[in-house]
Write a protein that binds this DNA or RNA. Structure first.
Lengths: 146, 146
DNA sequence: TTTGCATACTTAGCATAGCTAATCATTAGC
DNA sequence: GCTAATGATTAGCTATGCTAAGTATGCAAA
């Protein structure tokens, strides 16, 4: 039971688990009524405060034209609003509306419930192990954010 | 440092880590020269042996028409071949070609290298922790596969 | 056996989301 | 004040998701 995993095996297993975990929670997202790119971008706006289109594109790792269209759709649906930046009138600040904020919090709750249900099968020791692992991963994933 | 994470925080953190981890390794995938849906489907065919279109669609959680088109593209690129099932001539078995197998193995290696490089910052204890966590996750993610 | 329904896949047509190239407006530098 | 750089958008392509409808095959019951 305490068989040692090789370095490569840990990498492979983490990779596989990440895929399966996200596949699991994503089944809840259809309830939001918006596509995955819109949901992800809106989430960044809600939790990351107002930011410019370029910043948002960077955060989502897509090109500005792609994000421009996603934001356009979110504006049409009343989930964010655009506002010209006073300091630099070329750029646009994107703000979440109350409606957008509400949708994201509800979606987040659904995803979280799904995960918690999954984790509820585990014992205290195992949860503690996952918690520690999560902390380690956060550190190295955020660290070389470049 | 050993602050206890709540149940919800573990769920949230795992979720966030999964997102960031996949975002990281996916940067390697452009080198394969095929889109993400094609890469993922081809990977299933390569590692999961020959299977029918319906099975493949189920594995990828997409509808048959979507998978039909993805397979069509893979056939055009010489990465898989279709073969009518002898037992039930309505269905189609999908086989990976040598070229498809090669592409997937190379991609897998690139992703793995990326992850290993990331993990190389960690100490033995931390790797062991991640290994154990990965094992736990695998168990509960594969368990209620329904 | 043939009639009729179910199943496996494909085709057609639509929406979302990714990209590059080109355009427009604004800012910054000389 | 020009010119270059920068932020965003528009246009147009590809890829990938869906549903509805069509085709071919299999199965079962009349």
């Amino acid at each position: 039971m305490t068989k040692e995993l090789s370095f490569e095996e840990v990498a492979r297993s983490l990779h596989s688990n990440a895929i399966h975990l996200l596949r699991r929670v994503r089944t809840e997202d259809s309830a939001m009524g918006i596509g995955p790119a819109q949901a992800s971008a809106l989430s960044v706006v809600v939790f990351g405060g107002p930011l410019t289109l370029n910043e948002l594109a960077g955060a989502e790792q897509v090109r500005p034209p792609t994000m421009s269209r996603v934001v356009e759709a979110l504006v049409r649906e009343g989930l964010v609003r655009r506002q010209i930046n006073k300091e630099d009138r070329r750029s646009v600040k994107i703000f979440a509306t109350d409606k957008g904020t509400k949708i994201i919090h509800e979606g987040r709750n659904r995803r979280e419930k799904r995960l918690i249900k999954l984790l509820s099968q585990l014992g205290t020791d195992e949860i503690r192990c996952l918690g520690r692992a999560a902390r380690i991963l956060s550190r190295i994933l955020v660290a070389d954010h470049a």
